[in-house]
Design a protein around this nucleic acid. Sequence first.
DNA 1: CTTTTGTTATATCTATGCTATAACACAAGT
DNA 2: ACTTGTGTTATAGCATAGATATAACAAAAG
Lengths: 127, 127
Amino acid sequence: MVIKMDFNSDEALYIQLRNQIIMGIAKDILKEGESLPSVRQMANELGVNMHTVNKAYALLKQDGYVKLDRRNGAVISVSLENRSFHMETIHSDMQMIVAQAICKDISLTEMQDLVREMYAAFSSAKI
Amino acid sequence: MVIKMDFNSDEALYIQLRNQIIMGIAKDILKEGESLPSVRQMANELGVNMHTVNKAYALLKQDGYVKLDRRNGAVISVSLENRSFHMETIHSDMQMIVAQAICKDISLTEMQDLVREMYAAFSSAKI
DNA sequence: CTTTTGTTATATCTATGCTATAACACAAGT
DNA sequence: ACTTGTGTTATAGCATAGATATAACAAAAG
């Protein structure tokens, strides 16, 4: 999977990496059971320090996107536990987006269309 | 309008303040033309430094939620210009939420229902 | 003339992000 | 046995951002 860092972004590098991996899973480019490059290898590929990658991997593990073991490194393994916890996170994130949308006169229909298009976009990326 | 800071949050204080004001506008608790407390007064009420409030106000001005003038302080004034710019921001924010939702097996219908409920929640807050 | 407004400028402290180097325990391959 | 490659942890240094504290300015209102 192709991952590119934006060193001029205000977003932290480990957050960028985490987000791109999550999007890779959503697009099914990163499939269940697949291994990610080791922290050192990924760091080398991205031109980033090992600890930055390690921080991203640890975050992905914590949020239930990968499992880490010494044999195979970081393996894609999405956990469907703590669903209510993730719903809460999504809830509060979505709340700010909707608040901005309402202020800027973006209709409910527009937002639902946007969500539908995004689901379609992620699905169409699947082979 | 009641605003409370969470000093234990990992979210910056000026971001918290900005977000709560945007939600206040979305709920129509803060109405068009209404004045916000001055930076010094708001800072005093929240137990926060003046510059922290100033930063939030400047951000709200930049994003077209308030207008600032010397007579009346910060006045709620939502600009509907730069709509495409705001759509882009919402687009990229939404993309990460949807990616997480897909990974965690949350359906399109569930997400659209969530958006609908939020629109309803903000509207019901209006008097 | 005083007060209050937003605004700007410094300075200081703390926390975070990123890097660098090093070491550890464990598993796999040779 | 030995080496290599995992994740993991620890420590240190550097740069930036967040928050605070003082201070001052120009403009508007009373």
